[in-house]
């Protein structure tokens, strides 16, 4: 599904990703944990083709195709999706109009209004979203939780095959996190080949969306990979201790 090969990325003179390698196969859920400023969110933006980051070397491969040179919208239309850490608000652009345009960008003929409204209302209901959110300007006046729910609403409508969840749990209370994760899990059940990359600081979200692999990322590269339990080791011991223990184990 999605693979990076020796990816080196800079912003200005600063190297952010350092020979970064990851291989996420169809239907797999991977989680990346790491201290602040280690390049986790950069990775997500680079995968989505943000022009502020320079790929110095290496490749991003999606479904067997090198996508380094594809624009952000082309990547999205191929099935990549990012749920943003801080979803922005867009004054004057109505949520439903925006989503309809996004759906139509993936189709040859435009979606019917009745079909669209039925789908969006049903998806909003499943997320416990107020119907007025659909007709409001994108995220204007919305709380952190409502913004995150809006991101998941977009997943349900745009049907991506690869989803990046960048700190989905930030800004969500326990009940909302549960609702949002249940919706993602049911989406994954309906679309079993969909892969997910979860970027998080805390294992709490991983209790709801169980990853097959957990990676620890430090200084722009993955330094340790394990299963679900690695997340709890990190929470218990911190990043530096977990990494040191791992290095010592290797030396022994």
């Amino acid at each position: 599904m999605l693979k990076t090969e020796n990816l080196n990325v800079t912003v200005g003179d600063k190297k952010i990703l350092n020979n970064f390698n990851i291989d996420i196969k169809d239907g797999e859920i991977h989680a990346i944990m790491g201290p602040n400023g280690t390049g986790k969110s950069t990775l997500s933006k680079v995968i989505m083709g943000n022009k502020n980051y320079n790929i110095e070397s290496g490749n991003i491969i999606f479904d067997g195709e090198v996508i380094n040179d594809l624009s952000t919208d082309e990547r999205a239309r191929r099935g990549l999706f990012i749920s943003m850490q801080n979803p922005i608000s867009i004054e004057g652009v109505q949520n439903s109009e925006f989503l309809k345009t996004a759906i139509n960008a993936r189709r040859e003929s435009p979606v019917g209004l009745y079909e669209f409204m039925k789908t969006i209302k049903c998806a909003a209901e499943e997320l416990d979203m107020k119907e007025e959110m659909i007709h409001r300007a994108i995220n204007v006046g919305a709380s952190g939780g409502e913004r995150k729910k809006n991101e998941v609403l977009q997943i349900k409508l745009l049907k991506p095959s690869f989803i990046i969840l960048d700190e989905l749990d930030s800004g969500l209370d326990i009940d909302s996190l549960k609702t949002v994760c249940e919706n993602i899990n049911s989406y994954l059940k309906e679309n079993p080949s969909t892969s997910v990359l979860i970027i998080t600081h805390y294992p709490r979200i991983l209790e709801y969306i169980k990853p097959h692999f957990v990676h620890m990322m430090i200084c722009g590269k993955i330094v340790k990979t394990g299963d679900y339990n690695l997340a709890f080791d990190i929470e218990k011991n911190g990043y530096s201790d977990t990494f040191t223990i791992s290095e010592n184990e290797k030396n022994e």
């Binding site: 624009s71 919208d73 979803p87 345009t101 960008a105």
Partner: peptide, 30 residues
């Protein structure tokens, strides 16, 4: 704002479609 354009493009809208929505909202929003 570049961040607005990036956000919209991550949903599959081309630059032209993003500009079209933003122009309409800029001119008519108030």
């Amino acid at each position: 704002d570049e961040d607005l354009i990036f956000y919209m493009m991550t949903r599959g809208l081309s630059l032209k479609e993003c500009n079209s929505l933003l122009i309409k909202s800029f001119l008519l929003g108030s």
